[in-house]
Design a binder for these strands. Structure first.
Lengths: 263, 263
DNA sequence: AAGGAAGTTCCGTTTAACGGAACGACCAGC
DNA sequence: GCTGGTCGTTCCGTTAAACGGAACTTCCTT
């Protein structure tokens, strides 16, 4: 099972940890940083833990639904329960409060609704959202998330995926039509994504809901990787796209602040 | 420190968990679902764990940077390390995104709930599941999985096990009765499994829940081995078995796509 | 100052975690 | 089919971490 790329091993030596719980968490951290299914022997190399210990730990997590096995293989992947847990963490952690403060400040300055979103399983999920005090509100993404091909944040995050990942998702997304402006052609969407990477922001000009426009800018971590999208949205009657675009410098500044609240 | 709102307590009893690690994880799950800093005594109520145990667990996480204290208070908040961990989890979901996208497309085409499942320790476990937008939903398999002898995916996966393994499981499964259609006779089940292998799909005609029908087809890896089951399920009022069976060609196509996403 | 509730520490007991070693499954080359 | 090697799984005697009742401290409240 010699894979081309070794796992990241920056982690402090997990093996010397006395608590079984922290050891287990260390294993999960390694596993989660690999962007692919991970085998037991890879984890042995990355963690220096003895084989039976690792095996026991992983079996425990599998049993509990935090991990699962790659079907048809033996490698471990992230389970449903861990995925849910992660989303809860990002929505509720202390840094979320900080991010919300930043969001609130932007909203009060530009008087339009802003939100912060990530991609989860190919759908756009809001981490947070602050409404501007206009009577005309719209409620999106109650549960499962938004289709990424027709909202500014979604297109922005698609645009910044690694090339192979982007290709695969593009090949699979249904590109459902919601308005006459929704991009439903794969080639058109692809060139739109390229354009987004170049100009550094994405727009949604009534592509999902008639009368609603959006502009999104990337939120980057300290390594410059795009990890979330910050967007302003509003009714075009009040916020025509041209006006939304004027907010971009302000959004970028907030995105930088927000980015620094992520590890 | 009596707060106005109690913590969500839906969690399965953490106290009865034998593994210290899972106990600890359960505590984190509770903590993370609260939308605010959480005190030790609140966690005592929510988890039924004894005070010193909780205190030790929390101190451990605090020491390791997974948790922190509310500045100026004693309540626990999410730490930097847990936050980073969560972000890594969400960024890891490439393959899951792909599979879910395929599932979503099928669901939007046939407008019925679909799921992807595997056998784990003799129980049927959902890998993923996408609901159709019908008001009448049913929630199955929250935690431990479904009995395989009375649902389409379960029978399908049993049917494609290697002969000795299949025999062993058949000998062990309790074949509990859930409706008057549940197959509880070992010989009958066995011939049903043989039939399933021949026709290439399995059905559940109200064998587990009255009024719910299912059809499942195999998902195969590149070697042709059955590694998972793709199933459509719905209320018979809307989805009588005959209609579900008409979806089989569509399901097969999706199963082929899904199969190619596995190693 | 007293009473109480929440948080912390102590420490003898218990039990889960540990990991070397043996075993089993799988694959490749012969 | 056999053989050597790798990876995953299980066994089981040993060890040390987790356990939790009880006592203690801190910080409110009255």
């Amino acid at each position: 099972m010699n894979r081309a790329f070794p796992l990241p091993t920056e982690t402090a030596d997990i093996a010397s940890e006395t608590s079984s719980t922290l050891k287990a968490f260390g294993v999960l951290e390694v596993l989660v940083r690999a962007r692919r299914p991970v085998t037991l022997s890879e984890l042995m190399q990355a963690t220096d833990l003895p084989k039976p210990t690792l095996h026991r730990t992983l079996a425990l997590f599998e049993e509990a639904g935090f991990l699962a096995r790659e079907p048809g293989g033996r490698a471990y992947i992230i389970g449903e329960r861990l995925s849910r847990f992660a989303l809860d963490v990002l929505r509720n952690d202390g840094a979320a409060a900080e991010r919300r403060t930043i969001l609130r400040r932007v909203v009060s300055e530009i008087t339009e609704t802003c939100n912060l979103a990530v991609l989860k399983k190919g759908a756009l999920i809001y981490l947070d959202r602050v409404e501007a005090p206009w009577p005309l509100k719209l409620h999106l993404a109650e549960g499962g998330g938004l289709p990424p091909h027709c909202c500014a944040s979604g297109k922005l995050l698609l645009a910044h995926l690694a090339a192979p990942e982007r290709q695969r998702l593009l090949g699979l997304l249904p590109l459902e039509r919601f308005t006459e402006r929704t991009i439903t052609d794969r080639a058109v969407l692809e060139s739109e994504l390229d354009r987004i990477v170049n100009v550094g922001y994405a727009v949604d000009n009534e592509e999902y809901v008639l009368g609603v426009a959006c502009v999104a800018v990337p939120v980057r971590n300290r390594h410059g990787e795009v990890i979330a999208a910050l967007a302003v949205q509003g009714a075009t009657a009040r916020l025509p796209l041209m006006r939304a675009i004027e907010f971009i410098p302000r959004l970028r500044a907030a995105a930088a602040e927000i980015g620094s609240t992520f590890g």
